[in-house]
Amino acid sequence: MSLASAARAALPPLLVFLAFLGLWQLACSVLALPAYLVPTPAEVAREAAAHLDQLAEAALLTALGALGGLGASLVVGGLVAVLFSQSQVAARSLYPYAIFLQTVPIVAVAPLIVVWFGTGLQSVILTAAILSVFPIITNGTTGLVRVDPQLLELFAMSDASRLQLLLKLRLPGSLPYFVAGAKISGGLAVIGAIVGEFFAGFGADDLGLGALILQTSGRLQTAYLFAAIFAATLLGLLLFGAVALLGELALRRWRGRELAVH
């Protein structure tokens, strides 16, 4: 994507965001909303600038938790998807428990994680992984089992083993599905990391964005709270963009190989 096309793609959402800020500022002025209830965008910007170092450090800690959770979900979810694609018995027996990971309220499980594993980064990563693993399992399984029957016949005519079928046909063909699942899981990993920090935290001197949100809300530092929320949103967007970019690079190579084969 060229710089000009990237700018054209970014312009519409940027204009919407600027319009949102204008309406927000107008509402605060017309309704005379108190700053402790709804601060103006200018007040949020001042607080963000005043606490830029703290926000950056908190975002880095949350990013470590989110990346760790996303990495764990990719490994575990990928292995489970391979298992489900190779064994219908395993899929029928274990898939309901995979759904359980998606449906159980993470705020109900997070306190148990703290009891079992203590506070700190390991509990934050585990919480993020639990919340983000389901899209990897479902998308990966779909991609692994949705194979062109003609290609299956071709591999069967070549007396390909089950392992060869998995490594040379199912896994390469499922790449777009895994990429789609990873995009969804990227945003969920950030949410999971922040929820994990609500309970697990990092310590009195090391605050992630989740702990910072709790702290500022408890002290009615609303402008600072808004700044932390915007930092968390920006972190989610950056992680989604990074996953999307890496996925697009991988898909380009995959499409190139597909064209070479055909």
Score class of each variant (00 low, 15 high):
A260K: 13
T40S: 15
T141R: 11
V104G: 07
E57G: 09
L225C: 12
P12L: 06
S217M: 07
F117P: 08
I130Q: 03
R46S: 15
G186D: 06
G196A: 04
L94K: 02
I137Y: 06
A232I: 05
G247I: 03
G68F: 04
V179I: 15
T142L: 11
S2I: 01
G241W: 08
L251A: 08
P135M: 02
V80F: 00
A211R: 07
V107H: 09
V104F: 13
S123Y: 03
T233P: 05
Q25P: 06
Q221C: 11
I106M: 14
P34M: 11
H51A: 11
L151C: 14
E43P: 08
V16E: 09
L31P: 08
S2M: 06
L11K: 06
V76Q: 02
L64F: 08
G186I: 08
P41V: 11
G241T: 06
I99W: 09
G22E: 06
P105A: 06
R46G: 05
V147L: 15
L83M: 12
R219D: 15
D159I: 08
F198E: 02
V114W: 01
L52F: 12
I113V: 12
E197I: 08
L235D: 10
L235R: 07
P96I: 02
I184N: 11
F20H: 01
Q215H: 11
A110T: 00
F100E: 10
I229T: 08
L15M: 12
G118A: 06
M1Y: 13
R146T: 15
T233H: 12
L163T: 15
I125L: 10
L154V: 11
L212R: 03
L15F: 12
G256T: 02
A63K: 05
T62I: 03
I106P: 09
I136H: 03
G78M: 06
L207G: 01
D159A: 15
S2H: 12
D205T: 13
A227S: 14
T40I: 02
S185K: 00
V114G: 03
E43V: 04
L14P: 05
F230M: 11
L121C: 05
L188K: 00
I194Q: 04
A250C: 12
R92D: 13
L237H: 10
I194G: 01
R257H: 12
A81Q: 07
A90W: 09
G210D: 10
Y224W: 13
T119G: 10
F100Q: 06
A4Y: 09
T40F: 07
G140Y: 05
V82P: 07
Y224D: 04
L259F: 10
A160D: 05
I106W: 07
A81M: 05
P34C: 15
F17M: 15
G65Q: 00
A58P: 01
R8N: 04
L188Y: 05
R146G: 11
V82Y: 00
G218C: 10
Y95A: 08
A90E: 01
R46P: 03
A50E: 06
A4R: 14
A232F: 02
S73M: 12
I184G: 09
L152A: 09
W24K: 07
A260N: 03
V109N: 03
L37K: 14
F240N: 12
F155L: 10
G241H: 01
L166D: 02
L79C: 13
L169Y: 07
A66N: 00
